[in-house]
Write a protein that binds this DNA or RNA. Structure first.
Lengths: 171, 171
DNA sequence: TATTGTTATACTCTATAACTATA
DNA sequence: TATAGTTATAGAGTATAACAATA
């Protein structure tokens, strides 16, 4: 794949001086070749910010955000997650999970069910309403991601997926 | 590259029932094959959280965080960024830039200099102290990223870089 | 003793609107 | 009229400690 244009390979000093000529040069073009523009962590943070904003906007009509969508998704799976497990997988503090589940439960989308093997633990499961909402939200999110990666081949998407999984789970 | 083990390809239902046997199965292993575990946006968010936490810990002795480090990095480049440009490139609100620059300026790391071509605008430039701190921080950050990608070939790193740039800047 | 979920709290990050000084 | 920076403020996200119930 090839995402960078030849313009981006131009030296930043030349671009800086060309500003005086009045040509509108975007901040992206002016800074893309600095240290930070080459910094993987920064790119990761910016990519996430872009995608997170897009997904939040997408889910707004359903009164969901990326966080609540993530919890709902796992609640809709057949894995019977506990709150502790949700906290680990979503990389959130257990107290944040409490607040997220509280709101989803108030809306009748998930239920806290007692875990027969450990009465300290709650199993989080989606209600029928939760499953229905997820059936609406899931395809929306998938389509948005599809669009964001539309210029990548199937092989490239697999690679990107592999890289992110590696970093996200230290594998 | 190949980051997933054969264990991860096992069905989640089998894993769920195996819990009763008492084998300690991590949340990662239990959920990695759910919809969410295959969700690029989620992986992006988690990868960013992992890396951001690592970098914040790394920079703590220098009293920097990823945000202030980013601003300092651009201030140290030869591009003479305005606050507006910093906001665009870092994907932050201009008011957040104000607060970040305020703290860096108090510490004597950067200066607001008047832009001769537009008196509304400030050019942000690193002081000698700022350059010195960045000379310390930059290699630390680079080394940490190097470590996080140590299992990737040079070609794979290029690919990851390309993917993230694409998503981060809609290219 | 250790762990799950809970509550309370504080701090950081993010988003919005209104203001000023310049253009 | 529009833009760069500023201020104030509120809301979302993050982190910590302490507690009750249970293991």
């Amino acid at each position: 794949m090839e995402t960078r244009t030849s313009a981006q390979l131009t030296g930043s000093a030349a671009e800086a001086t060309s500003r005086q000529a009045g040509a509108a040069v975007s901040a992206t073009d002016r800074f893309i070749d600095t240290d930070l523009g080459q910094d993987v962590d920064f790119l990761l943070a910016r990519a996430r910010a872009v995608r997170s904003a897009a997904t939040n906007a997408l889910l707004e009509p359903l009164d969901l955000r990326v966080r609540s969508y993530s919890v709902l998704s796992l609640a809709c799976s057949d894995t019977n997650p506990s709150q502790k497990e949700l906290a680990q997988f979503l990389d959130l503090d257990p107290s944040q999970i409490v607040a997220l589940i509280d709101r989803l439960e108030e809306r009748g989308l998930v239920r806290r069910e007692p875990d027969p093997r450990d009465r300290r633990s709650n199993v989080i499961r989606a209600t029928a309403a939760g499953q229905a909402l997820y059936a609406e939200a899931g395809p929306l999110v998938a389509k948005s991601q599809e669009l964001a990666m539309s210029s990548l081949t199937a092989r490239d998407r697999e690679r990107l997926f592999g890289y992110l999984t590696m970093v996200a789970f230290n594998r």
